[in-house]
């Protein structure tokens, strides 16, 4: 199904979805996504395989990512995924939303006198 770039998801992304889209800033297979997310979040976010499989399937259905071939590593052939334009715009929109919230939070902390 074709999706327009003008209609990114209106719902905020879940933490797992956000991390997966961020991991796919360059094409990666599922295992690399799990590793990248664990490393990038210093182990705070660990994607379980059930969660990752469901998220990858859902993101493909929404047109945010696409399969981008396979990568052979030893005896394993792993499916590689890449962001689509729609996925890139969803990630951009979410970063802007989080930026806004971050600024709001900093202002609130300053008001409370506990700013960093």
């Amino acid at each position: 199904m074709a999706h327009s770039i003008a209609d990114p998801p209106t719902q905020p992304l879940t933490e797992s979805t956000f991390c997966i889209l961020a991991a796919l800033s360059e094409p990666r297979h599922g295992y690399a996504v799990m590793q990248w997310v664990a490393e990038a979040t210093a182990g705070r976010v660990k994607l379980g395989p059930g969660t990752l499989y469901g998220a990858l399937t859902g993101l493909q259905d929404k047109g945010l990512i696409v399969p981008a071939g396979e990568r052979e590593e030893g005896a394993e052939r792993r499916k590689v995924y890449a962001l689509t334009e729609r996925g890139r715009s969803a990630l951009t929109a979410e970063v802007a939303r989080l930026d806004g919230l971050h600024a709001l939070g900093l202002r609130a902390l300053e008001t409370l006198g506990g700013g960093r």
């Binding site: 879940t14 664990a38 994607l47 379980g48 395989p49 059930g50 969660t51």
Partner: peptide, 8 residues
């Protein structure tokens, strides 16, 4: 890599 299969 993760202690659970569903983590969210």
């Amino acid at each position: 890599l993760s202690p659970e299969i569903h983590t969210d």
